[in-house]
Design a protein around this nucleic acid. Structure first.
Lengths: 121, 121
DNA sequence: CTGTATCCAATTCGATACTG
DNA sequence: CAGTATCGAATTGGATACAG
């Protein structure tokens, strides 16, 4: 198990340089909306409208853009059912579930400690 | 151990609403530069100039702003040694180390998988 | 060495309106 | 229902210069 940042850096040269894959993916999943969309989907499949309601404050533009990014990263699966009216479902891919196994403990920690942290002098 | 997003949500009402403490802290630590600064500090104390070199691409403005935010959240400790020329050291607080215990596994996962993810069709 | 101040460019983002 | 298109506002961010 990796426990130090030095170990992570050692695993590959220049792994945290600007524009490298690691930085790009970090920007996607650690973005304002990325975390929330991924977290919402970690409970199971959701439709477009359900996602929009669960992720408080997200605009349609940002939801569409976030979903496209996460899907192209292979973290989110989009399934369009051929019906009228349209019915589209979003879910985590196996890769996405693997990621959320690491992310949820972090989100849980923040939820636990946030109120003691904000507004400090 | 919390494993589902539903459990996290259940722990407090409206915990993921816009403007709530959880969202504010998430924005700080999951920000573009927040992750990288915290990661760099997780290896130990660093001076201003060392941080600037280790976090590739960060501007002085963003480094200053990121450090102020993380310090006011109680995650980073700033120690100014009274010498000429000035010598200032930054390190994680116990709270910051606690956080990084959850964040480093996530960063390590991304470093491992990023190159297989970016540039997918 | 460790920052702060200022200006300006780039990007993000939200509201609104509209389509299949 | 599930998006796309467009616009302008707001925010972010970098370069530079400078101060303690």
């Amino acid at each position: 198990m990796v426990v130090s940042f030095a170990q992570i850096r050692a695993s590959q040269d220049r792994i945290f340089d600007e524009g490298c894959g690691t930085r790009v993916v970090l920007d996607h999943i650690m973005s304002k909306w990325g975390v929330l969309v991924l977290s919402a989907l970690s409970d199971g499949t959701l439709r477009w409208g359900e996602l929009r309601r669960q992720v408080d404050g997200i605009s349609e533009k940002m939801l569409a853009s976030t979903l496209r990014t996460l899907a192209s990263d292979g973290l989110v699966h989009r399934e369009s059912l051929p019906s009228v009216p349209p019915h589209v479902e979003y879910s985590l891919t196996p890769l996405g579930r693997d990621l959320m196994e690491r992310m949820l403990p972090l989100v849980a920690w923040v939820a636990d400690h946030a109120d003691a942290m904000v507004g400090r002098p």
